[in-house]
Design a binder for these strands. Structure first.
Lengths: 192, 192
DNA sequence: ATAAACTGTTGATATATATCAACGAGGAGA
DNA sequence: TCTCCTCGTTGATATATATCAACAGTTTAT
């Protein structure tokens, strides 16, 4: 169950955890199963956990005043999910996070994570790299969103997240790209 | 000249630097003056410096295949400017950074910054908070860009960056919002 | 002082995308 | 097995924004 997380830590840092470190990591995380459509977080709550996805697919979205969902993040195995601003600043989140497929997660609180920083140096290194890469990816998406056409954003998406195509329906991907499912359908027809 | 930076550090961390720490910080930064339109960074280069703006206004933008500029970042006094992905990963930047007004900057290399982390704890704390707030702001902008209309994005901008209105021309702000200057002009007319 | 460049606005038109409605196919649940 | 739900596509239409051109005022440079 924690194997995936240990592998992830090794892949990110090049560091193999000792037995002691593995025990510390194991006890710091809480296992949680979610059924499809079940919430991990709802808008207005404070994000108490960050979650590593062992198995399944998750999505993070906001709902506008017309009730339309706008997907900010999609995530599958070996990804992390959570509203980092709410998690660090203890502010109510504008996002909802729920399971797109039945999912198995490992959750950690901010306090437990800070404890691990001291006890397992690989964790603090991994977290820093993960945060940086996330930040870079968000900035690239922002750049794409203000300068590219919808079609070009879709091409970009195919390059950077080909695996998402099989895990999420077209209308979810369209929302993630900031377009409607009809527009995505027409783009796909043109592209083939 | 460095007063602004010391004040910034204090404001972000609540920590007052000692004389020794001030000397360390002063010697780690390089002063640089740029004339209006002068580049700090050009696309394809590696971003060797991050810059604190003591005086002036800077902009960070990419140029698409049609030669159109897309502004990703505007910055004035007490802001930082640089391509953080290129700075940390030593990859060529897709961005240009130049001075919109004659500007005075304090530049620091990655190596000097890492030295300061050890020697002046307030610097590492400030940098972490700055990076986090930047990351949060980028995510909020992404959320706004995929879910809001152009008009709503402008309203948002007025709330979060009222001081930019007097420092940057409308066509620059339009580009930063991902719309054309004509569209922004029409939105402003409607809003008044 | 003058010319050139920059800036913002406006009107007309074009285009990209949204919206609405409907349909067919496939999957899920009872 | 059947019904309901989900999904993706398509056509028609509407809307938000882009594009183009032109103009007037302001600022900058010579």
């Amino acid at each position: 169950m924690h194997e995936a997380l240990f592998n992830y830590i090794f892949r990110y840092t090049g560091l193999q955890l000792s037995e002691t470190e593995m025990e510390l990591v194991t006890s710091a995380f809480t296992f949680k199963k979610l059924r499809k459509k079940q919430y991990l977080l709802q808008e207005g709550e404070i994000c108490k956990y960050f979650a590593f996805i062992v198995q399944g697919a998750m999505r993070q979205y906001s709902v506008d005043e017309k009730g339309v969902e706008h997907i900010l993040q999609l995530a599958i195995e070996n990804w992390w999910i959570g509203d980092r601003e709410s998690y660090l600043m203890l502010t109510p989140t504008p996002y909802n996070i729920d399971a797109w497929e039945d999912s198995e997660l490992l959750l950690i609180t901010r306090a437990d994570l800070l404890n691990l920083f001291d006890q397992v140096p690989a964790i603090s290194q991994m977290t820093r790299q993960m945060d940086d890469k996330n930040s870079f990816a968000t900035q690239r998406r922002l750049k794409a969103t203000i300068s590219y056409s919808a079609e070009k954003r879709y091409q970009d998406f195919l390059t950077t997240h080909p695996d998402f195509l099989q895990r999420f329906p077209q209308h979810q991907i369209a929302s993630y790209l900031g377009i409607t499912k009809e527009t995505l359908s027409r783009i796909r027809k043109q592209t083939i």
